[in-house]
Structures are given as structure tokens and as C-alpha cells.
Amino acid sequence: MLLNDKNVILVGGKGGVGKTTMSATLALLAAARGRKTLVVSTDPAHSLADAFGVKVGDPKDTLGVRLKDNLYALEIDPDREVKAHIERVGAEMKKLTRPEMFAEIERQLRLTQQSPGAQEAALLERIATILEQGLEQQDFDLIIFDTAPTGHTLRLLSLPEAMAAWTQGLLKHDSRSQKLAGVLDHLTPKKGRDIDNPMSDPKQHESDGMSERNQAISERLQARQRLFQRTRRLFTDPQRCAILFVLTPEKLPVLETQRSVATLQQEKLPLAGLIVNRVLPEDADGAFLAQRRQHEQQYLAQIEQSFAAIERFYVPLQAMDIEGMQGLEHMQTLLAQAKL
């Protein structure tokens, strides 16, 4: 079972299909089986707190808020993460540059904060850090991310390239930038042109022979790249990581899932299954629901046909909204019955 032997589960799906409820329930079920579990949400609306019915947030001194035995939760605020990320980068760059460059650094960082991909880059760095802290330092058995795995993991592939290009732009303002030409070689093949594999390993001794300042820049860039490489390796390891997509038997969720599945398979990411949520139960009666069930059967058949090679877990529609720990415990039973 996925919850029994994986270290990371990424839960994705179209908005409104019950993805956060499924993430919270999966975490609750894993914790009930004795696995120390952390569930992480990147939703700025803090829907994970709504699902559990308690305040979660992002405490500074601990990795997650303890909700019950073996169960911890964490909400990442994407906007705050971008701001903190930019501040960290600015502080590091000022340590490694001359004071006359500070104004240019601040200008470029202001532009970076508003640029496309800034939020994804900041979130990816935080996700990578959470994985290392949680799995290696705080002994979590399982970390579940309530997020969109397709976008995040694909951007993970291109982030070292973007990092190299951004760094190169800053270095153009330094009259001694030619001394740092070798720094970029280990980040992007062909010195940033025609990049095919931005995840290639850094050269072992690229910073040998550089000045102390230039060596510090090189080593910091290498450390960041290696962090993302480790995360990439974890995300592509089917023994440790699994991706689950949540969908409902409706037109738009099915179409979006088809596109996402194709992308994940193309990138050889470990798609482990689909949770088909809110399926009308057999005992739902009345002329309206009978007509709705007939309509739903078309999409269930499409799901069976389109995703025949992927394991599917069916969860029935509930009469009431799923609220708080009591509602999630009921869903926990349903997911266990679905063989999750």
C-alpha cells in the first residue's frame, strides 16, 4: 500500500475536486497506521486548516503543528515565502559583492519578485528544505504535499538554468566577472546556450584556484543546485515517492487529468494512482439523482478507458460536507475501504 511504504506523496488535481480533503485524510490514515506523518499545503487560502478545523500555519521553531499522535500539519504561505526567499538571496549576494553594487542588487531583486516563476522558485526551495529536514533530521516516515505536482516538479528541472542566468546577469556588472566564467559551466552545459539537461551534476572541483570571494559564490551556487538535484532524485524514485491525482467523474476534471497524466509519464515521474472522488452511491435515489448517475456513468467509463493502466481508487459522494477531524475520520474509513 502506498501509505505504508512511501516517504513522499504528492497530491494534485483540479481545484474543487476535494484534493485538500484527500490529502488531509491520507495523512490521518497513515498516522493511524503508526507512521509519523507531515501533511504540507501550499494553498494561500489555508484550506488545510479548514479541513482539520484547527489553526495550522507555519511555526518558526518547529516543522509543522502537532494535531494528534503521529500527525503534523504545515501551511506554506506562497507570498510570504517569495518575500523571505528574495530577502535571503539579497543578504547572501551582499555578503559576496562590493557595497557599490548593493543598489543594483536591490533593483534586480525587486524585479525578480514580480517576475513569472518567482513564486514557484521560492516554493520549490522551501519544499526541498522541508524534505531534507523532515525525512533526515526529524524522522518523519511520510510527507504528503497538497499541491500541484506537475507544475512544481517540471519547474524543478529548469530552475538551475534560471539560477545560472540570473547570476550571470548580476555578474555582468562586475568588472572582474570573467574570473567567474567557470562558475556557470557546472550549472548549465554549453555556458547557458542550448540547454538540454539543467540537472547535470556540478563538477567536483570547479571552484579550485578561485579567489576566496569567487569561491564562496561558486560553492553557494553549487549547494543550491545539489539541494534541487537531491529533491529531483527523490521525486523520480518510485520506491520512495508517489504521485496521486484526485478527480471527479465530470468533463473538465477528466480532461485536465488526461493532460497531467501525459506530462507526468513523459517526465517519467512516479504516478501511482487516481482517486476518483464524489462518485454517486448506489443507494442515492430520486429521479434527479438517477439522471445524474446516468450522466456520470459516461465519465466513469471514460476514466476506465483513459486510465486503464493506472490504479484507481473510488470514493463515494457524501451527503454532508466533510468538516473537522470527525468528518476526516469518516473519510479515513472510506479510503481504507478503497484499498489506499
Rank of each mutant, 00 (worst) to 15 (best):
Q168W: 11
D77L: 08
Q291D: 15
Q108V: 12
E267T: 11
Q258T: 01
T236N: 04
P198H: 11
L227N: 13
A118W: 06
P59L: 00
D196A: 12
E75A: 04
K172L: 13
T333C: 11
F102S: 13
H46E: 09
L63Q: 01
W166R: 04
S207K: 10
H186G: 12
Q229Y: 08
L131N: 07
L38C: 09
R176I: 05
I130E: 06
I86R: 06
H152N: 05
N277P: 10
D185T: 14
I322E: 01
G327A: 05
Q138M: 09
M320K: 15
A181E: 13
L26T: 04
E329H: 06
V54H: 12
D69G: 12
G192P: 07
L187E: 01
R224K: 15
P59V: 00
L3R: 01
E282N: 09
A287L: 15
E212I: 10
T263F: 02
R224M: 10
K6V: 02
A27Q: 04
I322P: 09
K60V: 08
W166Y: 08
S23K: 03
A165D: 09
E267N: 08
V40Y: 01
F228I: 03
Q215C: 14
V246I: 08
E304R: 08
Y299K: 07
D283E: 06
D5L: 09
E296C: 01
P281C: 11
E75H: 09
I105E: 00
D194K: 05
L271V: 02
G90E: 05
K14D: 10
K172R: 15
N214C: 01
V54Y: 04
Y314V: 02
L328R: 03
N4C: 03
L135W: 06
T188N: 02
Q108M: 11
Q265Y: 03
R98C: 01
D208G: 13
M101S: 14
V254W: 02
E161M: 12
E75D: 13
L264S: 01
E311W: 05
V54R: 03
F313S: 02
Q332W: 05
I217V: 08
M163I: 14
A31I: 10
H330L: 15
G90F: 07
V56W: 10
T147C: 12
V11I: 14
H186S: 12
G90R: 10
L2G: 03
R233I: 09
Q302K: 03
K179P: 04
A301T: 13
I275E: 02
V246F: 02
L171A: 05
Y72H: 11
Q137I: 11
A27M: 12
M163V: 09
G134V: 05
K190M: 09
L247S: 01
K19Y: 00
E81A: 07
Q298F: 15
Q137D: 07
E106V: 09
Q225C: 03
G13D: 01
F145I: 10
H186Y: 11
M320C: 14
D194V: 10
K251G: 03
L142R: 06
L3H: 00
E75M: 04
G169F: 13
H295S: 10
L48Y: 11
A223H: 14
D237Q: 06
L221V: 03
S211T: 15
